[in-house]
Every structure is written in structure tokens, then in C-alpha cells.
Amino acid sequence: MQFLGYLISGISLGSVYALIALGYTMVYGIAKMLNFAHGDVIMVGGYMVYFTFCSRGWHPLLAVLFAMAVCTLLGITIERVAYRPLRSAPSLAVLITAIGVSFLLQNSAMLLWKSDPKSFTSIISMDPISIAGGQLSIPAETIVTIVVSVIIMIVLLWFVNKTRIGHAMKAVSEDRGAAQLMGINVNGIISLTFAIGSSLAAVAGALLLSSYPTLVPTTGAMPGIKAFVAAVFGGIGSIPGAFLGGVLLGVIENLSKAYISTQLSDAIVFLVLIIVLLVKPTGLLGKKIAVKV
């Protein structure tokens, strides 16, 4: 019974990683870059929810929508100002810029909102759900996180596979030049990708902080790295892969915390990543790209 509890909270944590990983994987798939500032967008989203919901008592849904809007704007701005001028630069330059943006966001947050931890109130005000005759009590946050993530995932998959804009995104991801010649506004599609990824990061931030309620300017860093790992784990560029990778990562992390060692749990997570990549270098659902020689 206890195992079930750890498993469910692992899936919940994993769902948050999955939401963040979606941002990494979509941006990688479409813009062919690793946006290491993505984790810090979560932190900004967290602060937005904190200032509106925790301090001013807005309705939680309104607060999350506000945070999504701010993060969407932030994501588009980052892309426009920092990454777009480097569109044809070597990928290393873009990567370093992304790390720079990450530091910029963290330090701006420290300057603006100070580095003292803020204690976050959960946006979910439902009672814990007890199952198996009260033997196991699961916090409502856990369930809500899983449900919200699954819904977002389904909508996103449907959007990408079935709509005109989704097709355009896939086209840009496969062959930017050819897509442009089909009349697709590549810059617009890349902006949209950043917008979607960043708004999901805001949701992830609100959900993450509801379960782990300490908010500091570096809150986004570790979940950001883990979500990146999840994206690679599942096969970077693949949306279902990001989801699977995220959930598995959360479960592995939680179970190793519970049964092996709290201190070693992160080490175990990364060890699993290394093993998976040794066996399957493209990740679990990654597509093998044949290189023409």
C-alpha cells in the first residue's frame, strides 16, 4: 500500500517533469536548439502565481492564467531578442546564449524579488483523497497534477498531429527550408513553439510549487535540468517521448528516495539516464536519423 503511495506521487512529480520536458522537446524539434533558460521560466511562472494568488488572493485559475500569459510573453521575448539573431549561428553559440539567459533570469529574479525563500500556498484547496478504506491518503495536488498533465498532453498531441498549424510545426521540424517555400512563416512557428512551451512551464511551476512549496530564484534550475534529462531519456524531439521520459524519471526518483537513499536519488536518476543512452542512444521513443554518407 505504501508502495502505491510512492508510485502515485512519483507519477505526479514525473508529470510535472513531463510538462517542462514538453517545452524542451518541442523547441528542440522545431528550432533545433536546447533552451536552457526553460527551467527559469518555471520560476518566473511560480513568482507570478505567488504574487497574484498567494499575496493578493486572486482566484487560483485566474492566477495560473495570468502566469501563463506572462511566461508566454517572456518566452516569445527571449526567443526574439536572444535566439532569433543567432538563427544561422553555430549551435554552440546558441547554447551558450541560452545558459546566459538562464543566469540573467535567475539574477534578475534575485534583484527584483530578493533571494529569501517565499512559502507558496497550494493552488489546490481540495481535501486529500483516501483510498483502500483510509489506508492510503493521497494529496489532491498529486491527483490534479496527473490529470492536468494528461489532458495537456492529449490536447497537444492532437494539436500537432491534426491541425494546420500543427502540420506546419512538423514541417518546420523536418525541413525548415522546404517549409518556408511552402509559404510557412518559420519565425512565426518558432515563436509559437516558444509560446506553448513557456505557457506549459507556467502551469508546471504552479503545480510543482503546490507540492513542493519553497520558492526561490533558483527554484527552476533543478527541475529544468531533470526535465531536460527526461526529454533526452524519452527521445528528444518526440512529444510522447517527453511525457514517458518525464513520468519514468519521476517514478524512479521517488522510488529510489523511498527505498534506496534520499541523498543518492538524483545520482540514481542520472545513472539510469546513462544506461538508457548507452543501450538506446536516441532515447526510448527517439527516431533514428539515418545519416547519408
Binding site: 491541425t163 500543427g166 502540420h167 506546419a168 512538423k170 523536418e174 511552402m182 510557412i184
Partner: peptide, 29 residues
């Protein structure tokens, strides 16, 4: 040849129509 290799034949043609048949993102969502 620069087709969108991983997309279906039909979807390749539909990408070609990108600017001919349009609807807003919200209609799509």
C-alpha cells in the same frame, strides 16, 4: 527530393496548402 519524409502523403500535400486554406489557431484548438 525534400519531402517531409515522416509525414503522410496526404499531410505533405496539406502543408503545401498552408496559406490557401486557413483558420485561426483557436478554431483548431
Amino acid at each position: 527530393i525534400r519531402l517531409f519524409k515522416r509525414m503522410s502523403v496526404l499531410d505533405n500535400v496539406k502543408v503545401g496548402m498552408h496559406n490557401k486554406v486557413t483558420y485561426g489557431m483557436w478554431h483548431g484548438i
